[in-house]
Nucleic acid binder design. Structure first.
Lengths: 180, 180
DNA sequence: ATGGTTCGTTCCGTAAACGGAACGACCGGG
DNA sequence: CCCGGTCGTTCCGTTTACGGAACGAACCAT
């Protein structure tokens, strides 16, 4: 019953420590008591919605960042039946010279996904979060582990697959130059 | 102060009535009191996280469906007073070994943003969409143009600034290793 | 009419989330 | 050594969210 609260507690503590601010300081800027924040991070409290809004606001994150459910399926998932890759479009940027699509990408192990060539000049940029990804042109694929970033020209046939048994989680950025 | 609660209340009532179930029935299946649910829908209560989980579960919706405004503007921008950088959190990834925060970042020209060091091991990864960005450790900043990607260790003081008169648009990925 | 059912709200005692204060631990500076 | 400061936790009185019960209203069948 308190498992979820503990989840939120540890997630909250990591978010706070990632910013390098103290518990006292965060409590102060959030306008809540240190006891409240401490108990929240330790999972010994069942926070009120108002409290959650306060800390989320002080951290500068949306409330959903604190209450993210691990098992919740992403609503916008684009799933090609039987394919290795599932992608969720995060945002699209329309720039004068190009269009950018930022996606979150899952790659299931054991399958090699072939992708047809895109329009000329299109490049793909992947930042790997988890697992090891092998991706790129079919004749010259690249490999990237957690935290690494790879790019390639996508106007030729290219592939996505995992290296090893683990699922790959990454962000995929597709840059499509605007036809002049 | 209760504006947000009212928001959740009316959204909850809509979700319930869309399913054609009564307040009493939902309270029963959620295992909470009718008084609690009534007050929640009317916006006269400040619900506990546990209560929200119960209701969301009984409705068969993720918790974010109650908390997130579907048509809400991306009003999560984090603005440091008088600073050059405005960032919007796109997503948070919780991995066994690290936490990733993916942000969309704007950098205004003409100002140099100084950022204090983060926790040890934190790295930042930027993919530039538009403009030219100069960022990284204060003593060794990196430069990236559109489509380019740079990374650096963020556990030392670092800066963000533009090169040239144009605003910079980029994605910022912050990787915070989980303390072992 | 009348009894039985369910509706959503309000009342109320209890459990617990809240903030302030005190605590020991830790850290430079004098 | 001994401060003054900050750290995160714990203690404690106050506030309040909780569920059970009671309420009036609406509805239906007899």
């Amino acid at each position: 019953m308190d498992g979820r609260d503990t989840d939120i507690g540890s997630r909250l503590r990591r978010l706070r420590e990632a910013r390098g601010i103290s518990l006292s300081a965060l409590a102060r800027s959030a306008g809540i008591g240190k006891a409240t924040l401490s108990g929240l991070e330790l999972g010994t409290r069942n926070p009120t919605l108002e409290t959650l809004y306060s800390v989320a606001g002080a951290l500068g994150v949306p409330l959903t960042a604190l209450v993210l459910e691990p098992g919740a399926p992403p609503a916008e998932a684009v799933r090609v039946p039987g394919a290795a890759v599932t992608a969720t479009l995060l945002e699209v940027f329309e720039e004068p010279t190009a269009t950018f699509e930022l996606l979150r990408m899952h790659v299931r192990p054991g399958v090699v996904q072939h992708s047809p060539p895109h329009a000329p000049g299109v490049t793909e940029h992947v930042t790997v979060y988890a697992g090891v990804l092998r991706a790129g042109p079919v004749d010259a694929p690249l490999v990237a582990g957690p935290g690494e970033h790879i790019s390639w020209q996508a106007d030729v046939p290219h592939i996505y697959s995992t290296v090893g048994p683990d699922e790959v989680l990454a962000t995929l950025l597709i840059r499509s130059p605007r036809p002049a």
